[in-house]
């Protein structure tokens, strides 16, 4: 097991507000980490720093052997290896689901169109919406859109997948279909960092749990220990509220 992501003393400020305080984290290949915590605790900011949608001001972030900083020239190359699924899906509404999936492989990875389409259909099959490939995002349900977004990210064949509260914007009956796709992905050996409140999902797939509060990692533990035997009082309180 080799390290693929490493964060050392990462600090991030939004103007005066400090969003991340000395965050240290190591993620191994094929490891699944679930991050939970109250809102405003810095969970989303943390994973958005990993593909530099947010910029950190202090500390080091190393992804797949390359440091990410203001001096990183080819940040696009790193982003192409790190897939991300957003809370609001962020599908491209002017393109069909298939085109959503093939766009980046064709234009960023220079993949031939035919090959990109085959890959897209494979990934759409994987999240079980191959039959919707010709439709536009606006014609799909929230759950279908989020699975399309997952397929779109997978089409870049990323080494790491980041999930930023992927089920928070969904109706309850659609959450399961998205989580099922994520469980499949986890079983296939993807390295995943997931920000979510779905503790059932966390128990099923996570190797390690992280609890964050006020920009700090309060507790990091093996999933079983985290739920059965949390060490910090803050974690206990949080778990008692959401379980």
């Amino acid at each position: 097991m080799s390290k693929i992501i490493e964060l050392k003393n990462v600090n991030k400020w939004f103007d005066k507000f400090q969003a991340l305080k000395d965050v240290n984290l190591e993620v191994n290949q094929q490891e699944k980490i679930v991050i939970c915590g109250p809102s405003g605790s810095g969970k989303s900011t943390l994973i958005r720093c990993i593909n530099r949608l947010e910029e950190h001001q202090k500390g080091e972030i190393i992804v797949d052997g390359k440091e990410i900083s203001a001096n990183t020239k080819d940040i696009e190359k790193i982003r192409a290896e790190v897939g991300m699924v957003f809370q609001q899906f962020n599908l491209f509404p002017h393109l069909s689901i298939l085109d959503n999936c093939t766009l980046a492989p064709i234009w960023v990875k220079k993949m031939p169109k035919k090959q990109a389409e085959e890959l897209a259909m494979q990934n759409l099959e994987r999240v079980q919406i191959a039959d919707q490939a010709k439709k536009f995002p606006g014609q799909l349900s929230g759950g279908q859109q989020q699975r399309s977004a997952l397929a779109r990210a997978l089409c870049m064949e990323p080494k790491i997948m980041l999930f930023d509260e992927p089920t928070s914007a969904l109706d309850p009956e659609m959450i399961k279909e998205v989580l099922d796709s994520m469980v499949d992905l986890a079983k296939a050996g993807m390295t995943m960092i997931v920000v979510t409140h779905e503790m059932g999902f966390a128990k099923e797939v996570a190797d390690n749990m992280i609890f964050m509060d006020e920009g700090k990692i309060v507790e990091k533990a093996k999933t079983k220990d985290f739920f059965d035997n949390p060490k910090s009082d803050r974690t206990k309180l949080f778990l008692s509220q959401i379980l």
Binding site: V82, M84, Q88, F92, M156
Partner: peptide, 29 residues
């Protein structure tokens, strides 16, 4: 929405690809 920029960036698109493939087609429409 900001999410369109973020989604394009997260797929590894640079400034020009992001604007010509994702942003401008929608904005012009």
């Amino acid at each position: 929405p900001k999410g369109q920029y973020e989604a394009a960036k997260s797929l590894g698109m640079g400034y020009w690809r992001m604007h010509f493939l994702i942003i401008l087609p929608q904005a012009l429409k």
